[in-house]
């Protein structure tokens, strides 16, 4: 029962491609509704870890469990938001039809879809853009669209792989707040990969830092900052500044 209460549990997870060890001995527990951020340099295997939780990759050894059940293949209860929205969206489908995809895949009756799709588009601020093709939307809007599509799955776990890495600073902050608002509404568990320490601290209940070559957990800290978070007050909070310094020092030590 104790194991089943974890939304995500990794037990001694290792992965190697041939003689190339990517991840080794990863142990991690994520509680339901927890927002966990994973940081690490490129090559630390953070994206690989996310792909294993998604069921896109199978660990060489160890186990990945979702709500106590081993992951063997992807499930619609887990949604993934990729960094490269330009490739993850269907370019020939308008915004509306992109959000429709998971509903179609999940077998929702056609009559129920329009209301649900419009509700989701409105949630991410794309209500007036439902007839546009992804290529006609800005980067930030395309990423909003991908988030709406992920939410259409009504996932209990949301995996986000550096989702704002390709966006400008202003758009990035807006989207950070939108994601916080959207997941707190539904108490969604979030596994958020980033290489940005401030982003990790701003969003997360917990931050896990990965060491590279091979990837392993270097550090796991709680972020006791009050919610709802705010781009000004949270980032000026003494605890935020203290944690930021601590994380920087850790990351420097790791990559020294």
């Amino acid at each position: 029962m104790a194991a089943a209460s974890n939304a995500i549990e990794l037990k001694g997870v290792s992965l190697s491609f041939g003689s190339n060890q990517i991840l080794t001995g990863i142990d991690m527990r994520v509680e339901p509704g927890e927002f966990i951020c994973v940081i690490g340099a490129s090559g630390s295997g953070k994206t690989t870890l996310l792909r294993m939780i998604a069921g896109l990759l199978t660990p060489t050894s160890g186990q990945v469990l979702l709500h106590g059940k081993p992951v063997r293949s992807p499930t619609r209860r887990v949604a993934v938001v990729f960094q490269d929205y330009g490739r993850a969206l269907l370019p020939w489908r308008r915004a509306y039809a992109n959000v429709s995809l998971p509903l179609e895949a999940g077998g929702m009756p056609a009559a129920q879809r329009p209301a649900r799709i419009r509700e989701l588009l409105a949630k991410v601020g794309l209500a007036n853009h439902e007839d546009k093709f992804p290529g006609q939307l800005s980067g930030g809007m395309q990423q909003r669209l991908q988030i709406a599509r992920a939410l259409a799955q009504e996932p209990d776990t949301l995996l986000m792989d550096e989702p704002f890495g390709a966006l400008d600073a202003m758009t990035r902050q807006t989207l950070q707040d939108e994601v916080l608002r959207l997941v707190s509404e539904r108490k969604t568990t979030v596994f958020f990969v980033t290489h940005d320490i401030e982003e990790a601290l701003y969003l997360g209940d917990r931050v896990v830092a990965l060491d590279s070559n091979p990837g392993r957990v270097a550090y796991d800290i709680k972020v006791p900052l009050p919610r709802p978070r705010d781009q000004l007050t949270t980032r000026e909070h003494p605890e935020f500044l203290r944690l930021r310094r601590e994380m920087f020092e850790i990351m420097n030590k790791i990559h020294a």
Binding site: L56, R87, A88, L101
Partner: peptide, 11 residues
């Protein structure tokens, strides 16, 4: 990426 999307959606 779209092949992955189809897998994630269990299409």
């Amino acid at each position: 990426r779209l092949v992955e999307v189809s897998r994630l959606l269990q299409m």
